[in-house]
Simulated assay, not measured.
Amino acid sequence: MLSTLFGLITVAETVMLGMVIALRRRQPDWALALLALVLLGLVWDNAVIAIGATVGEGDTLEALSFPRYAAHGVLVPLLIMVGVGLARRYDVRFFTGATAPAAFGAVTVLLITIGIWLDIVTLDLEPTRYAGTLRYTNAAAHGPPIPAVATILILIAIGALLLARTRWPWLLIGSIAMFAAAAAAVAGFWIGNVGELILILTIWFTATRRMNPQPAVSAASGPSKQH
């Protein structure tokens, strides 16, 4: 059953949450704290879908489902600032000053505001069954989720800058994979959840790589060797 897949994603993201917390203890960083918050929301999201058919349709599952949407509306755009934090740690020139982080912070606040409107204020839950799963979906939703799509596109841009700066491709790969998974989710909503797991894994991998930073690339010395 598809519920089993969501159970496995829940376990994987719970493990990822523990890894992020452990990494933050070694490297105190606000970006990792934000990533942990996002992961908490994703763990809840997948766990509720995993147990939906067991809980059954009714007030209990509906109550458990509301935080799923609240978390997506409020927490997912925080990944933009996670990307900004990683870019600053990698000394990407565009993010080293105060202007770009402030601008991206403003965009994040705007997307959170839109998410609150779409996923909290106008939320209209209705039960939906698919491949053995039972979940509550937003009947008021029309078109693609703007905050999530914008977040992914910004992460793709940050990932491209990281690749140009350090030749470290994983944030870009994870962001593109998430974008492709979101597009493919029209054929099966579970694909988007798998994409989220891949994205979080590549973000964590990018954060751990910073433990062994590469020297800056300069015109005089040429590109540094990769290990």
Rank of each mutant, 00 (worst) to 15 (best):
L75V: 09
S65W: 10
S65F: 12
T60A: 14
R68G: 04
L64N: 07
V38P: 12
G73A: 10
G52V: 08
Q27T: 12
L32D: 01
D45Y: 12
V74A: 13
F66E: 12
A63C: 09
R68D: 08
R68E: 11
L75H: 00
D29M: 12
A70S: 09
F66I: 15
L61N: 11
G52F: 08
Y69H: 13
A36L: 11
L39C: 02
T60M: 13
R68Q: 10
L61V: 09
V38H: 02
L39A: 05
L79K: 14
L37A: 06
A31Q: 06
F66L: 15
A70Q: 04
W30Q: 14
E62P: 08
V48S: 06
V43A: 08
G73P: 00
L61T: 06
V48T: 04
D29F: 14
L64I: 01
G56L: 13
F66Y: 13
L40M: 10
T60V: 15
A31T: 14
A53N: 12
V38D: 07
W44S: 03
L35R: 09
P77R: 04
A71H: 12
L34Y: 05
L39I: 14
E62T: 13
A33I: 02
A71V: 11
A71Y: 07
L34W: 06
V55G: 01
I49T: 11
A53Y: 04
Q27P: 00
T54Y: 00
V48W: 08
L39G: 04
L32F: 00
N46H: 08
W44N: 01
V55L: 09
A36K: 05
D59C: 07
V74C: 13
Q27R: 15
V55A: 06
W44C: 03
R68H: 11
E57V: 11
D45W: 15
V76F: 12
P67K: 13
V76C: 07
L40K: 02
L79W: 05
A47F: 15
L75D: 02
L42C: 02
I51G: 05
L34G: 10
L79A: 10
A31I: 11
L78S: 15
A70R: 01
A33K: 11
L42N: 00
L32R: 01
L75Q: 07
E57R: 03
D45S: 07
F66S: 05
A50I: 03
H72E: 13
P28T: 12
V55Y: 01
L75K: 01
P28F: 11
W30T: 12
G58V: 12
A63H: 01
G41C: 13
L61E: 11
A63L: 15
E57Y: 05
L78N: 05
